[in-house]
Design a protein around this nucleic acid. Sequence first.
DNA 1: TGAAAACGTTGACATTTGTCAATAAAGAAC
DNA 2: GTTCTTTATTGACAAATGTCAACGTTTTCA
Lengths: 193, 193
Amino acid sequence: MYDQLLSYIARYSESPLTTKDEELIKSVFKPARLKKKELFLEQGNICQFTGFILKGAMRQYSVDSSGNEHIIQLALENWWMVDRESYLMKTPSVYNIDAWEDTELLVLEAADLQQLLEIPTIKEMFWKMNQSSFIASQKRLSNSIALPAMERYEELLKTYPDFIQRFPQHIIASYLGITKETLSRVRNKLVHK
Amino acid sequence: MYDQLLSYIARYSESPLTTKDEELIKSVFKPARLKKKELFLEQGNICQFTGFILKGAMRQYSVDSSGNEHIIQLALENWWMVDRESYLMKTPSVYNIDAWEDTELLVLEAADLQQLLEIPTIKEMFWKMNQSSFIASQKRLSNSIALPAMERYEELLKTYPDFIQRFPQHIIASYLGITKETLSRVRNKLVHK
DNA sequence: TGAAAACGTTGACATTTGTCAATAAAGAAC
DNA sequence: GTTCTTTATTGACAAATGTCAACGTTTTCA
């Protein structure tokens, strides 16, 4: 069960982990399971955990005054899921996070994070993860302000083709910032062009 | 000239810098000046520098096939400016970065970054900067997909009131992902409500 | 200081996207 | 197996935003 996390760490760092490091990792990351639709974080609460997805699919979203969900982030196996602002600053979150499929996770409490970061290999891994999260977020933002709906969808097809397989269209639409009807029409146009 | 950077570092880290650390910082950060509209990074080139703005205002933007500019980032005094993806991966950038006002910077070459990161205080500062960049980017993304133009503008007014003072409306509009005409109408509605 | 450029606003109209309702198919639950 | 829920599509219409052109003002700078 921890092999998946350990090999993830190995892939995103240069130096190997000592046996002692591995012990620490196994002691602070706790296994957890979520049923489909089960909440990992509820709006208004403080995000207590960082989750590493072993198996399953999750989503992070806000709910607006009309009750519409807006998907901020989707995540599959070997992705991290957390509301970083809430987790780090211990402020109430404006987002919900839940499981879209039955999901197995390894979760890390905020209180254990500092201890983990004393392992240079882990620190390096999180450093890289932060960098790529930021870069991905900035790209998505760039698409969001610069591209019309169809091109945003085409970008998504290229960047995260798995999403299309794992999430229904209304979720994809929300991720793109459009309605499911608009996405349906966009797809229709793409087929006929 | 370096005091501004040193006090920035002090503000975003817990431990103080040694005199030796300060010497290193002064040796790797080089002063630079940009005239208004002068390019710091041109689309297609690799971003060579991270800039710390001492005085002035800058923008990072893409240019679409119709020649329209889309502002990805605006920055003022005590902000960092860089295309992180290009800088770190050494890949050609899709963005331009230029000065919107005559600007004074301290610039850091990518080659000198590693050396700097060996100073724990600096590493901590960059760590925090990465975190807050990501959080800011995610918030902006969240607004971009969830809020209509007027509310995005109101959010901007709250979050970065300085931008309104320092950049003309067509720049603000582009930052929000709308046209200058739409922004003008939004502002008109806000006055009359 | 005077011409040129940049900026901001407005109107008319086009385009994109959203809303609502109806329908049908696919999938989940009992 | 059959009922209920979820998902996807489509049409008619509404709302938001974009486009283009014109105009006046402000700013820039030679």
